[in-house]
Structure formats: C-alpha cells, structure tokens
Design a binder for these strands. Structure first.
Lengths: 205, 205, 205, 205
DNA sequence: TATGAATGAGTTTTCATTCAT
DNA sequence: TATGAATGAAAACTCATTCAT
C-alpha cells in the first residue's frame, strides 16, 4: 500500500508530525484562541510562514491534532470491541476496568484532556460535532456491551442500555474533566477513577 | 435593604438585565470568541457603544453571565443542603432524584449547558478556575451527603466518599454535556437522566 | 451699554464663568486632549450635557479660556503702554522691571503657563495662530519701547529694535516655560526672573 | 562594535529610519494627537499594520523621534563642552556665537521646533519630564560656562550663574519658539538670532 | 431647563495569511 | 524550499455630541 519514501519525504513527514505535536502542546497550554501560529512555529524552531507549507491554516492543524486523538480513542475502544467476550460478572468487571484504564491512559495526558474536554468544543460548530460524534460512538459501543451483558444475565434485566451507556460515557468524560483541575492532589486521580468504576458497577447503595 | 428606585433606575436595571440575557444567548450560540460586542448590542437593538455604558468590557459581561448561572447552581445545591435529612434508603433515593431534577432544571437550558460546559472553560485561566471552583463545591456538598448516608448505614460502608462524590459530580456534568448534542431525540434526555440516577444508586449490575 | 440683568441672566453668567474657570484648571492639569468634557462638568457639579447649554463644544470653551488669558496679557502690556514715559535710564530700568513683574504675575499661575506655553499650541493651527498673534503684539509693543529708548539715547544706538524685541519676548516666554518645571526650588523663580531682567538690560559681560 | 549587516537587516533598518523620519514630518505637521498611525503608514506607502512590525505603538515612535532630536541637541551642547576653553572676552563671544549657531542649526528645522517646543510637552507627563530634563541639562552646562567666565574675569562678578543660565536657555528656546511663526519674513530669523546673542552678551543698554 | 442615555465616528492594535526573496 | 516582511480585515474601546425625558 505504501511506496518507499524518499529521504526528503520522510523528513517532511517527520517535521509535519513534530508540528502537530507542538501544536498539541501549545493549544493545550494556551488555549486555541490564545495560541498563535507564530507560537507554534517558534517552538518548533521554524519561521512562521513555513508552517503554511505543511498546513493550510491554523484551523487545519487543530483538526489534525483532534483527529489523532480521536484515532487513539477509537483504537482504545475498539481493542475491547468484542461484546461477547465477557461471559460472567467477574469477566465483565475486569473488562470494564480494562476499558476504563485504557481510556484513562489517553486522558491522563493533560494535553488530551484540556484539548478535547475544554478547548475543542469552543472552537466552532464543526469541531463540536466531531467531538459529539466520538461521544456517540462510545455510547453505541457501550450500548453493545450492555445489551450483551443483559442478554447473558449478568446485568440488570431492566437496564435501559442506550440511556445507561450515555450516562456511563458521561461519567467518564465528566470525571476526566474534573481530574483536569490542577489543584487536585495526585492521589485523588486513582481513587476517583476507582470510585467511578465502582459506581458504574455497583452504584453507591 | 432595597431603597425605592426611580423610574430611570428601574429602566436602567432592566436594560442591564436585558443585555446580560442577550449576551447569554449570543455567547451560547456563537461562542464567546466568535461573538462580538456589536452582535450583542445589535440584538438588543442599541448602538454598540451603549454597551460600554453598562459594562466595562466584553469580558466583564461574560463574568456577569457566569456569575448569575453559578448563583443559580449554588442555590439549587443549597436547597437540599441538609445532609442529615435523609434517614432511610427510600428517602435517600428521593433526595438524590430531587437534586438531579433541580440541577437538570438549570442545565436543560441549552444556553446554560453550552456556556458552562463548553465555552467558559476555554476563555481564560481565571474563568476556568471559577468553574472548577463550582465543581469542587458540588463535590464537597456531595461528600457530606455520602458521609451521612454511610454513617446511617444506607450506603456502602466501604464508600470512598470524596472520590465517589467527584465521580458523581462528573457523572452529572458529563451527562449534561452529552445531552447538549442537538442531534439527540428529546426523549433521550429523560431516559438518560433516569439512567444516570439509577446508575448512581444501583450501578449496572 | 449694559442693561440691567435679570436674576436668571446673572446666574447663568456666573455659571458660565465657573465653567470657564474649571475648564482652565482641568485643561492645565490634565492637558486639553486628556481632559474630557465630562471631567469639567463633573468638577463643576453638573451633568455633562448641561455643558452644551453654555458652550458649543469642547474646543469653544478652550477658546474662551485662552481669550480670557490673552485679555489679561494685553491689559498688562497696555498698562505701561506709554513709550514716551521713560525719559532716563533709571526710569527705563524701573519700567522694564514693572512690565516683567506684571507679566510674571500672570504667568506665575501654573494654569496660565501650562495652558499657554505647553497645551494651547498643540491643539490646532487656528489656536497656534492666536498665540503667535499675542507674541507678535508683544513684539510690536516692545519694539516701540526700544525705538523710544534709542531715540532718547539711553539705549544702544545700533539696537535692531524689532529683532531685539523678539528676542526679549522670547526671553520672557522661554524663561516662564522653564519655570513651569515643578522640580525647581521655589527660590529659583525670583532669582531667575531677576537674572532675566538683568540679562535684558546689561547682558552678561 | 558593528557587525556586518545582511542585506535584509540593512533594508529593515532603513525602513525603520524612514518610518521615524516620516513620523517626524507627520507629527510636526499635524500634531501628535491629530496624526494617526495610518497617516504615517500611508505616507511611507505601507499598510498600517506594517507599522507595528517596527514599533510597538504610536507613543513608542514619538519617543524614538524625540530621542533622536535630544541626541542631536546633546551632541551640539557637548561639542563646545569645554568651559575652560575661552580665555578672553573675544573668545567668549565667539564661543557663544558658535553654540547659538549649532543649536539654531538644529532648531531651524521647523519639524524640530514644532515637535520639541510645541507638541511634545502636550503629550503626557513623562515626555514633558524628558523635555524639561534636556532644558535643565542645558542650564547646567551653561552654568559651567558662566562660572568659568566669571572666574576668569570676563563676566560680571555678581553674575548669578544658575539663574542667568536658566534665563539664557529660556532666551534660546523662547526665541526659537517665536521663530516657528510661519508668517515671519525669513530675514527676521538671522536678525533675531543676532539680537538674541547680542542681548545675552551686552544687554540692551 | 437640566440631565442621563444613547450614539457612531474614529483610533489603536492584533494576527492569520500571502508575498517576495 | 524556507523565511521574514507585508498586509488588511476585524475587533475592542473612547468620547464629543445629540436626544428624549
């Protein structure tokens, strides 16, 4: 599928990646609107007009950054994408925990959390739609798990799978949002995530 | 406490409120950064410089809008602010539902949700801190409820109250965030909220 | 020439004068461009639109203030306006000193100095012309004194009366300008003025 | 001290100088407050935002213009900065004339005179202080000359050197101010300056 | 008549993007 | 190709003046 690349092509691709990565840092730190193309270019160490040899616009690179993150999220969700896998409550709990850990692996990076949960939604409608698209994908996948679990009998029979899936995805992104708060003691992260998983499985009662 | 107001003072106050309200609409619809003072003024039907007779700056009116919303949230939280109130599981369930409904009453207004959950965090650090401040207040109050419930024996004895409180608040704001999505069928709102409350109380298993 | 004024007319005239006086203060303190009509009105203790019942514009009141000062200067110059008066060197020295004192009486008021020597010239061409007009009037009068003194033999026969008159008027306004400097010790004022008069009469050699 | 400059650097520096020079013209002609950044840019023949690539603000370029002029004035004053130089009345007269000519060389440029003597003082307190600073420097230097001349016996023994120095500096700036008047016949300039020097040396009597 | 309210013209400044070397 | 230079569209904000009560 991929032809061998010339040295120049490889170099260019590497630079492109470096720009994306730097933009990721800069957008997360300063916010998309506060950040300037010049900030990104300066941090990469190149002239700011060179930026435009690699990306169409400031908006375009944000798209790229977001796309990358979304890919990673989708991959994390897909990895466990075998609703039939779990056959017992115990397996189910483990599966749930694995997914939680996989997602948290992505979101514990403050850049990811800040960009996806705080910045991206505020840029424009199109990006907002993309974010909501990911959320709804997660909801659909989760619905699948729930349907499977209910069919196999280790989830409540009266479970409203879609609605509950949405609540669970909400639980994840909401909790990750709260964990962005830099004033929190680090220990709270693990405890909060444990509590979230436990909440999902057993509720508080 | 309140002196009798002259007609002019009343008029001025009303206009101020109208501006705040319009700004609320405009910020929620277009986003804070996209919206201009001129947009707000035009929608109120006044010259743009008149805006500055009532507010110091664009940023200042955002503060006012956010302050108003925060007040309402605090009021909603405070209304049920009697951790000892519930003395049985049943009462507890009702109390939880009441709080959920009260909060949802506020957040079902798409302006509130868009502004607080999508826009405000992306404006600047100071506003972000205020938002986190409200979240943490909610966490503290919720922790109180949980401690009470655990003490009285109708909540799990091994409940990590603070961590769980954070997860619950995350559940609320995350779920409300997902419910902003305008592509959702309206029916999903009720079902999702029910599922969220149920999730909190009983988990999925 | 003047009919008896009604009470209302007198009141109005008084208020007008108060506004002029206040404008004088404000323009001198803050500078014409920095000062706002609102500042003047506020200090008089009236609404700012009332200002426009008494003056056409911000520029118009500056004109009035300047006119008043120019009147005073002209009066001071005219008081000694009798070129033939001095008949001896001694009388001449006294006359020169009297004029210097009379002018300094006007310019020692920092408002006058700041307004006339620093602010007024920078407003617009028309006002600049008026200021230059006063200077040239002073030059003409001084030329008259010099012609008289030369005719009577107590001034140098080779005196270029107009050119010298211009230098003398320059000496006055330049010295007064330097004396505006608030960092100067008060004692310097008298000494500097004495030196200026002495310079004019005897030179430094 | 100076590294070789690239072509681009030279170009940039030249443009910067051209902007400063144009700003000088514009400020002198229209006055600082009346002039807009757009006027300067338009006259240079560039877009108005380009201005901001070279200077921080409108105020900043005024500072630069004024700094340049002050440097020239200081240089002119320093050139004769050898109070001991003159040893006889005759030498002294020549020295005085040289200084007068050097200063007039600077101030005969109407831009210099208008900017320094009319505009700059009216901009803000900080600039006013800088102007007064130059005047006081001139006073200090002049005081040195006078002390020297008095010590050597070719100036009046009762000369109040500082006060007289201030009067002389006043004489210079005041006379230059009067010579700004565009209605004056050109011949008056020379005659007035001669008269001013003569006034300083011999007085009118 | 006196006033606060309203206004819009005008100014400075920023920054994503294009141009020319 | 890489870059600094140039640009203009846009936006926030000010204030002298007019309007309406």
């Amino acid at each position: 599928m991929s032809k061998p690349l010339t040295y120049a092509e490889r170099k260019k691709r590497e630079l492109r990646e470096e720009i994306v990565n730097t933009a990721f840092d800069v957008f997360a730190e300063q916010g998309y609107h506060e950040a300037g193309v010049a900030d990104i270019a300066a941090r990469v160490g190149m002239g700011h007009s060179t930026f435009y040899r690699h990306f169409e616009s400031k908006r375009a690179i944000l798209d790229q950054v977001v796309t990358n993150v979304i890919e990673r999220i989708k991959a994390a969700l897909a990895a466990e994408n075998a609703p039939e896998a779990a056959t017992s409550t115990e397996e189910y709990r483990k599966q749930a925990r694995r997914i939680a850990i996989a997602l948290d692996d992505i979101f514990r990076d403050p850049r990811v959390a800040r960009l996806m949960l705080i910045q991206a939604g505020a840029v424009d409608t199109e990006l907002e739609q993309r974010i909501f698209g990911v959320y709804e994908l997660a909801v659909r996948l989760t619905t699948g798990y729930f349907d499977n679990g209910r069919d196999r009998g280790y989830l409540r029979a009266d479970l409203d799978s879609t609605a509950t899936a949405r609540a669970v995805v909400g639980l994840i992104i909401g909790t990750e949002t709260l964990l962005i708060n830099p004033n929190l003691e680090p220990a709270q992260r693990t405890r909060t995530l444990d509590a979230a998983v436990r909440l999902m499985l057993d509720g508080i009662t």
